[in-house]
Each structure stands twice: as C-alpha cells, then as structure tokens.
Design a protein around this nucleic acid. Structure first.
Lengths: 166, 166
DNA sequence: ATGGATGCAAACCATTTGCAGTGTA
DNA sequence: TACACTGCAAATGGTTTGCATCCAT
C-alpha cells in the first residue's frame, strides 16, 4: 500500500517546499514532519512532541507548535476540524453537512439529499460502528475573501497563509 | 424555512429528554440549550456563555461547560470534530476521508473512489470557496466497543455517554 | 425537604510569547 | 558570519474541579 516510497517522496517534497519558501531545514523540523507524515494517527501537538522527543531528546514543545504552524502555512499539514479557540458545539440533529472556513473558523450547516444518501464503504465498519456520516467542505468563506476586512480573529494570525510575498 | 416551529419542538424534546433522564430542568439549562438550538453559528463554550449571560446575567461559565457535557451525554448536542485534548494534525494531502471515534477520539483515514467523487451542491459556493470536501464518519471504534478495556482516555470521563444505569 | 445544580475561585492543561543562545544557509 | 530557529520559562486563555449555597422536584 505504498508502491514507490510515498513517505520518502513526501519528505523530499517537504525539503523542496521549505527551500522554496526560504525557511531553514533543521533536524527538529525534519523529525516533526517525518513523524506526522509517517503515523496513522492524527496526533495533537503533545502526542507529536512525545514521539519526536524520543528521536530528538532536546526538542521542546514550543518548537513542535511553531513547526506545526509553519507547516500549516506551507500547506503541508492540515489541522483537523474547524480552527477554533475552543471546542464547538451544535444542536442540529437533522442530517446535514458542514462548510468550514479555514481562515476564520466559520461553520455553516447545509443540506443535500444527494450527499446524505452517500454510501460509506463497508470496509469502514472494520474500524467501528457508524453513527453518522456527513460531508465537511473546507474553503475560504465569503467574508474572509472580501479583502479580509473583518476576519473573525483579527489579531491572532493563525499562520494559515500569508508569508513569502512580503 | 421552519414550517411548524421546529425550534419550539426541539425545546420540548429537550424538556422531555431531560425529564426522562432524570436531570433537573433549570432556567440556565433551558437558555443554554435554546441559544445553541437557535443560532446558525456553531459556538464554542465562551461564545455561548456571552450570548446566554445576556438573558441570564448570573450564569457562570462553569454551568455552560457542565450543561454542554450533560447535553452531549443526552445526545442532544454534538461537539464538532474529534474529541480532543488539543488540535490535531495530519500530513496526508491525498484525497481521503475520516473515521472518528466519538468515545476516544481515534481518527483513521480511509479512501473511497466513490465518496471522493461526490458533488458538493453549487449553493455551497455562496458560503465561500471550496478547497476540499471529504466525508467524516462518526461512530464507536472497535477498541471502545470491545468492553472499553483500554479506552484512549481512561481517566477523564468526557461525559459522552455513561450515566443513568448506575 | 433534599439532593442535584449553580456560582465562585482556585487548579489544570494546552498554547503562545520574549529573550538569549545556537546552528543553518 | 548573519539571521532564522531553538529552548527555556513565564504568560495567556480555555476547561475542570471542590465546596458551600440554592432551587426544581
């Protein structure tokens, strides 16, 4: 399930992207990225840190956080779910789907007969029961497109994009 | 876009569920649920608190948190994304989908030609650009089913289920 | 009345930030 | 060699918890 060494290739892609973006390639960054690109898990920063610290005993949590932000900026790593300042909730129990803005974290429900009819591959049942299946669409919401006049989080620049063209 | 008052109905459902579950119906709980059931947003605890405190000036953040956990236990409210202790990341940039365990937060990728071909309704473009669309399947993972021998988070009982049958 | 629910304040934990030393380009 | 990157430690902000009081049942 990995004909050419996809992982090695991914590592090369990382090095190339880093060089192109003008960021330095350090031992830490390489190991952090390697760990994330290698694992089946979808670890949080702490878990990642614990894994990386085994190979690079001197890394600090800060570096993991900073590297993750940097990798996110390069588009090489994706944070799961909406970018939030906290866990978010909904009461809508009807079948529906989510639109999530990758910039400000806006979440909107939308309905779709077609999407709600989607068939989950039976192989998934090997992972566990299926309580719900819905589509998550990610993109840049209208407001954030509109010149970023009033982004939801004006201050904290969640290193998602900007960079380079300074 | 709400023929019968779906929201009123939802409130009734809440009261009924609360009574059946044997939890008390308080002013705070009612307002917290009402707020969440009414808004288009998918607020986090803090946002919810700020909205509710306008109607019930004495509520505390704690109550919001506790109520959200309680509502989650009753299945009336769903937290978005994987239940995490922190934001989680992935480096897999190939088209793929996610299986998420609602109990322990396990996340696994799976692939599906069919699901990856899904067509997002054009109406969604009104919300913003579409960078990615994938399916999120939620359920109880095999390990958590298996008698909850070694749940990922043995300690912290993320009030997801258990309750009642004490 | 009475036990569950609330509010307060302190505790906890994830994440961010300032600064001086370190290593890559 | 220079400047970005790292590690440390302190600050910040979300979330949880212990306890005395209060209120829905």
């Amino acid at each position: 399930v990995d004909p050419t060494g996809r992982k090695d290739r991914t590592l090369e892609r990382f090095k190339a992207a880093a060089q192109e973006a003008g960021v330095k390639m350090t031992h830490q960054r390489l190991e952090i990225f390697r760990e994330l690109a290698t694992t089946e898990e979808h670890p949080d920063a702490e878990t990642l840190y614990r894994a990386v610290v085994r190979r690079v005993p001197t890394v600090s949590r800060d570096t993991v956080y900073r590297t993750l932000a940097m990798l996110g900026g390069l588009g090489l790593v994706t944070p799961l779910g909406p970018q939030r300042e906290g866990v978010r909730f909904e009461a809508n129990q009807e079948p529906h789907h989510h639109y999530v803005c990758v910039e400000c974290g806006l979440v909107r429900d939308f309905e779709s007969e077609e999407l709600s009819r989607l068939r989950v591959p039976t192989a998934v049942t090997r992972l566990g029961t299926i309580e719900d299946a819905h589509v998550e669409v990610r993109g840049l919401c209208a407001r954030c497109q509109r010149g970023r006049e009033k982004p939801r989080s004006p201050s904290k620049s969640r290193g998602t994009s900007e960079r380079s063209t300074s």
